[in-house]
Amino acid sequence: MSVLVFIDIADGQIKKASFEAACYGAQTAALLATKAEAIVLGTCEADLSVLGQYGISKVHTVSDAKLNHFDSQVFTKIIADAAAGADVIVFSNNTTGKAIAPRLSARLKAGLVTGAVALPEVSAGFVVKKSVFSGKAFANIGINSAKKIIALNPNAFNITKTDGIAEVAALNSEIPAAAVTVLSVNKVTGEIPLSEADIVVSGGRGLKGPENWGLVTDLAKLLGAATACSRPVADIHWRPHHEHVGQTGLAIAPNLYIAIGISGAIQHLAGVNRSKTIVVINKDPEAPFFKAADYGIVGDAFEVVPKIIDAVKKLKGMS
């Protein structure tokens, strides 16, 4: 009887989304009057006992370099064994979680809710609120099976820290042979992954061409933000596909979303409307985005954004 949290690591470090999952798992465990444990697969340089600060009592590790590249089949088998005593298993709903959680659900016949945005309601049954229609609505889903799996949306749950040190113990686990061979990895280092970013600066067709993207990237750099774009911008290859946000791209929920030269079509809004604060800069006062925004400037991005950059520099004491 416990909650097991899958902790996803990248380059030997715990991902931010995994700290969120740890807090979520610990608070779910508190609701169920039980404890939360975690599992980490692959070699990790980070001190895993810090997970205690996020409410995890014990961390199970399989510290084998074979697990540094992930194969959903292999990970599922190991996690399924480790989860034998767990009632609830928590993942982050990131690319890794999306590849493992469904497999584990089918293997354990454990009902799965992906894209969770709140703690489960356990007073009557076990109901998890999730984002649907790319953020245009929520569904409250009851899980009917004894074992339950939840994949928590990144940026949907606050990280809270207390004192605490988790016990770290190696799990004696057999590693099955992987069917997936990783030939190469192409990672943009030093950039904040879009799904985890607190602040996102996004550009649309209003920026006229890729040569003008300095406006977006300069502001983003200054704010420690990730960059995003509207669909046509990715389609015409001004920006890479993975920056495309919206109903048919990535759905994100940063603390602050700054949209520059984006009209705010319904399909775009669907992927960004869970952002806490939305700022819109558009020269057209009738742009639909203003209806979904918290703050706005009606004006030419080419004039307004450089002034914003100067003002942020001033705020940060950089000029």
């Binding site: 659900s105 454990a110 809710v113 609120k129 609505a137 569904a139 869970r274």
Partner: peptide, 12 residues
């Protein structure tokens, strides 16, 4: 068997 069921939808 169905492992989950919709209880209710909400709008933000």
């Amino acid at each position: 068997e169905a492992l989950t069921s919709v209880v209710a939808f909400d709008l933000p």
